[in-house]
């Protein structure tokens, strides 16, 4: 009897001890971007005892500002690889302890070796997802699907075209249309002319995925630039759209999960990142519409007809992708000035 009592007490103590070691980690990400899915957070809490609180940003600049102004407030932050070097140089994020992330072994070397994620000579962002910025068409407006980006300039679709209201995206899009390197645009005048010719074709700009879906559903648009992850969600929801990676190429982006240098709960943060690149997490997320996973095992676990396997799993498509590199502030400002000038001329 006393023995059982003793055992019960010991067990209760052990349980109490393990919960005392449980941390509350704070994740900084875009809203609705995978890490904050209820089921994912619940599964993580059940497996590790750590709880997860989210905070959101609306632009990369805002994310950087939040990291600068609130040291110690965040434990995991999503950073686009094009911004990782800046965050690292400012001392905002610390190196990743690769030994603590078991699933990292399944991430291909070309992603873990990405120059931007390895800013400062060590891995500072765990490759999480990647995707494309290309375009999607309303399939009811086309008999045969276009294969060239020139469809945006096709008079047959005048007034039925949209691109996102974003300077960098618009200019890199035009760089692809003019056959240039998106990370080193040599002929900005060609880009300007190409965009100026595109303007009269445009019905409206889109700002968010929600905008895009509404405009497409209302029949306002035939063709519009779009993100691959969003396209998979729109197709999943039944919109008659198809994502196209034209022969001219597409803009690629890579998102990494980093740990702020000021984080005090790094063990829990590493555990969360490990769960985020786990195939089990990814397969379920992909069913709801997710970008492509950086984890090869996770990508392979998708069903054959899944968007990310069908479209982005094709090596020929991937070969056409130009991945975004960091953009210096002066270049960004020049792009913004050009974009505003083009918009103001309307």
């Amino acid at each position: 009897m006393t023995r059982t009592m003793f055992h019960a007490t010991a067990m209760a103590l052990a349980v109490a001890g393990s919960t005392a070691g449980a941390d509350e980690i704070r994740v900084l990400n875009w809203q609705g971007y995978g890490t904050d899915a209820d089921w994912a957070v619940a599964a993580f809490t059940q497996a590790t005892g750590h709880t997860v609180v989210h905070e959101y940003f609306n632009s990369e600049q805002e994310m950087l500002t939040k990291l600068r102004t609130n040291p110690g407030a965040y434990d995991v932050v999503l950073i686009n690889a094009a911004f990782t070097p800046q965050a690292q140089a400012e001392g905002l994020i610390g190196p990743i302890d690769t030994a603590k992330i078991a699933n990292l072994a399944d991430v291909p070397a070309d992603l873990t070796g990405n120059a931007d994620l390895n800013a400062g000579g060590a891995l500072h962002g765990v490759p999480w997802t990647w995707g494309l910025t290309s375009f999607a068409v309303n399939t009811t407006a086309f008999d045969t699907l276009p294969t060239s980006i020139e469809v945006f300039w096709d008079p047959a679709h005048a007034g039925k075209v949209s691109i996102r209201d974003d300077a960098l995206e618009a200019i890199q899009f035009a760089a692809i249309a003019t056959g240039q390197d998106i990370n080193d645009i040599a002929d900005l005048d060609a880009v300007r002319d190409k965009l100026a010719a595109l303007m009269p074709q445009i019905r409206t700009y889109w700002g968010s995925e929600n905008d895009w879906n509404q405009f497409m559903a209302a029949g306002d648009l035939d063709v519009a630039t779009f993100w691959s992850g969003s396209a998979s969600r729109s197709m999943e929801s039944g919109l008659p759209v198809q994502f196209i990676v034209p022969e001219e190429g597409a803009i690629g982006w890579l998102d990494g999960l980093s740990i702020p240098a000021s984080s005090t709960r790094t063990d829990a943060a590493h555990a969360f990142i490990d769960w985020m690149i786990d195939p089990e997490f990814y397969v379920r997320w992909a069913a709801e519409g997710a970008p492509a996973s950086a984890n090869a095992k996770a990508a392979a676990a998708l069903p054959e007809d899944a968007f990310n396997k069908r479209v982005l799993g094709d090596p020929e498509v991937v070969a056409r992708v130009q991945f975004q590199r960091p953009v210096p502030d002066e270049t960004r400002e020049a792009y913004l000035a050009l974009w505003q000038e083009l918009k103001a001329a309307q």
Binding site: M199, I202, R203, T204, Y205, Q340, K343, A344, Q346
Partner: peptide, 12 residues
């Protein structure tokens, strides 16, 4: 409401 022509001083 303005779409392509909806760029004004306020939007900038």
């Amino acid at each position: 409401l303005g779409g392509r022509v909806g760029t004004y001083y306020g939007t900038v």
